[in-house]
Design a protein around this nucleic acid. Structure first.
Lengths: 170, 170
DNA sequence: GTCTATAAATTGATAGAC
DNA sequence: GTCTATCAATTTATAGAC
């Protein structure tokens, strides 16, 4: 999707349908023919990642061994970021987007389930901060120019290594 | 500054001068009397942090012992986040803001100096990713609702602990 | 310094021809 | 399906009275 690139560049609020239409080389009304509203377009951009996240959660939640569960989750989350470097930054960047996505009950539920699994039962303040840092760090590193040149596989392994250091169970 | 709270809530692009004026209880023209443009207002909001960062850099850069230098820098950066939880999220959240701040040569320079010190000489890909994760994690954790309830001093220590785990020198 | 009023441009969104 | 034309609302920003 072309809209995603613009969202990543200028933020969702900073991207007008006119800009999207211009870059697509079509008229603004053409965009409105496919998406009823701007919010619908945003949701369409986000949807594939939401579904992937749902699959990952369904796979991780039944795992009873805590260490293995976290490991599966971390691997899956890193893969999601690698497969869509731009998207993750968009969803975590603009506070306005966070509010809009928070109104989507499915995505909201997924976010809470991910955090619930990472936090574990009865999380300490220490773990809360570690999970928070991991969450932000993972999502925004995907588009950080500082690591933009790294091949996918290298970035994958380094993100995993960082996550393990940050989230090492006490 | 009242504008900061709104920026943190809705993003910079998502906050109009009308909203700012309304919350301040004054007319829009009154805001324009103090700040020539919206960009000038944004820069004014950011400026105190820029100056603090400059002081921190001036203190850290002359330190010759590498371990001590990083330690001073981490402590200072965490303090900056604690002292302005909202601001750091604003500056790192909206991609549009990042672009605007990137056009400010002073802030741009400060950012590069911080990263340069954290990366150290001839940084490995591994270190680049770790620094990137730390950077994003530190800045966005300041406003994460998950840690919003923590007292400043607790958050301070936990952020430092996370930073040290993430950035432990090889 | 603060206000009302307004300008000029852009926004999200719609109507209707082809 | 894509276009031109247009709507009402909102945006940044300015002019000028008090």
């Amino acid at each position: 999707m072309t809209a995603l690139a613009l969202f990543a560049e200028n933020g969702v609020h900073g991207t007008s349908l006119q800009q999207i239409a211009d870059r697509l080389g079509v008229a603004k009304a053409t965009v409105y023919h496919q998406f009823a509203t701007k919010d619908a377009l945003i949701e369409a951009v986000v949807q594939p990642a939401v579904e992937s996240l749902g699959v990952l959660l369904a796979a991780a939640e039944p795992i009873t061994d805590r260490g293995e569960q976290v490991e599966v989750l971390l691997n899956g989350l890193v893969d999601l970021v690698i497969n869509g470097r731009e998207l993750s930054a968009v969803t975590h960047g603009d506070p306005g987007v966070a509010a809009l996505l928070g109104s989507n009950p499915i995505l909201r539920g997924h976010g809470e389930r991910v955090l619930g699994l990472l936090l574990g039962p009865d999380p300490s303040p220490s773990r809360r901060v570690a999970v928070s840092m991991f969450n932000a760090g993972l999502m925004l590193s995907g588009t950080d120019p500082m690591v933009a040149g790294l091949p996918d596989e290298d970035l994958r392994q380094e993100l995993l290594a960082g996550a393990r250091r940050l989230l090492a169970e006490d």
